[in-house]
Design a protein around this nucleic acid. Structure first.
Lengths: 249, 249
DNA sequence: ACCTCGACTTGACCTGCGTCAATGTGAATA
DNA sequence: TATTCACATTGACGCAGGTCAAGTCGAGGT
């Protein structure tokens, strides 16, 4: 992992503000981060946490961390997209999630990473040393509470994914994926029918327990049926209602 | 939910001791509970937590709680077995886990239950009101930390299950299930090749994303190949090495 | 302009597991 | 002892989605 590292400077704090922000919680990314952890913090606490962090840049396909390696950091993704996956000895891969701007990595606080993480597109992230972060948490019980509620939410999402993988058809999986991704981008960019897909079809397949070919076929079919339009960097949703019916809990 | 309820009495504390125990942490169940939460507690804290709890008994197939209902309790299973599952509108079911003696339910601390829970065999559990439990946690940051680490562990297990559901064959799923269950019973009863299966084949199928028929066929085949022996209440493992190879991470 | 390479699509074929249906089995009840 | 009912097993058959193979397309690189 050879990412560009730069200590965050006062005036461009890693958590409270983003580099192109004109004030507190102004840009889309910060709005998301505010949703996840920062709204549990006072301004001076943000400043303090900030001093623990450094901003890193990763090129596409560059590794943030690998499975089973000792885990010494916590990351907050601020731009780009990251895929999180587990590998079987024979090469089969299961993507367990995608991290988008605002998402945290390493919430588990376990000794070793339980999955690999690498950048899909050029990505920037704030890194905190686990030790400093952990010490800081010890002093702030309300943060720990927030952290726990975030982990619980992740657990709930993982269980939803178990339903998708165990009990849904290929078409339902794709629909659920598109709707879920739309909802996540909405928190970043507001309501929109234009869903960006930074990940490859292979990534989507490995997330949904399908092959590339099946993902491609189903998406082509949905497009043929005027349900979506496939565009270079993603998908435009035409018939959201139909997709939601397919993805129905 | 009409379970037999009885306020826990001093002398038969819900968490630190089990009814048939002759001293602290003596019986198997307590050993497990000690592993999960209680080892983070001082004796007087245990006693205090105890006053917040009541012991409940559930008959087989009785409901502990239902999906989407407001969640007002936390449970600690002390005997029996509980299945946790989500339902799709059309009746398809995904079992997201089984709770055995020592396991906690409701760690998520979310407003509403995200899955259903009902007893497979006659079950006893300690119930804590969420409010009292939550207040108690506020006063004990180290407990919150423990809780968070338990939730993280659950998340990790859920991700392992995602790999099983997304990328493994029926035979590998069954092998992983049997090995996983053996490891859990080992923490209760010590090393053993006799794996109890309190749940039905249907439950196993709904957990592994398979049909009853497939579960039955694969288990019959494993038995024919001298890998396991099917006994009335479970399975005896003959060729653990082979199962572990099949279940390999 | 040409080449390369990785991502994507599409078609033909195959198979693991689901579906449907029949039967066995043991525990509970009368 | 007979009856029932939930659970389990087994066989025959079909299909959703996997596998294999052959393109197409576009972004870099030279």
């Amino acid at each position: 992992m050879e990412a560009t590292a730069s200590k965050a400077l006062a005036g461009s704090p890693a958590l409270s503000l983003c580099p192109n922000s004109k004030g507190p919680i102004e840009c889309a990314q910060c709005r998301v981060r505010a949703l996840s952890l920062c709204d549990a913090l006072e301004p001076d606490e943000l400043h303090e946490l900030d001093r623990l962090s450094q901003t890193l840049s990763f090129a596409a396909r560059q590794t943030l961390f690998e499975q089973d390696q000792p885990s010494d950091s916590v990351y907050n993704v601020t731009a780009g997209a990251v895929r999180l996956y587990k590998l079987l000895p024979d090469g089969r891969r299961q993507v367990v999630g995608f991290a988008l701007p605002g998402d945290f990595l390493g919430l588990a606080m376990s000794e070793r990473n339980v999955f690999c993480a690498d950048a899909i597109t050029p990505t920037t992230a704030c890194r905190f040393s686990r030790e400093a972060y952990s010490d800081y948490l010890d002093a702030k019980p309300h943060l720990l509470r927030r952290l726990h509620s975030m982990a619980s939410h992740e657990l709930s999402l993982a269980q939803d994914q178990m339903v998708i993988l165990g009990r849904r058809t290929a078409e339902e999986r794709i629909a659920a994926f598109l709707i879920g991704l739309r909802n996540r981008w909405m928190r970043v960019n507001g309501n929109q029918v234009h869903v960006l897909l930074p990940m490859t079809r292979q990534d989507i397949g490995d997330f949904l327990g399908l092959t590339v070919e099946t993902v491609s076929r189903i998406m082509t079919r949905l497009a043929r049926e005027k349900c979506i339009v496939i565009v270079p960097d993603g998908v435009r949703l035409l018939d959201v209602a139909r997709l939601e019916r397919l993805a129905e809990v």
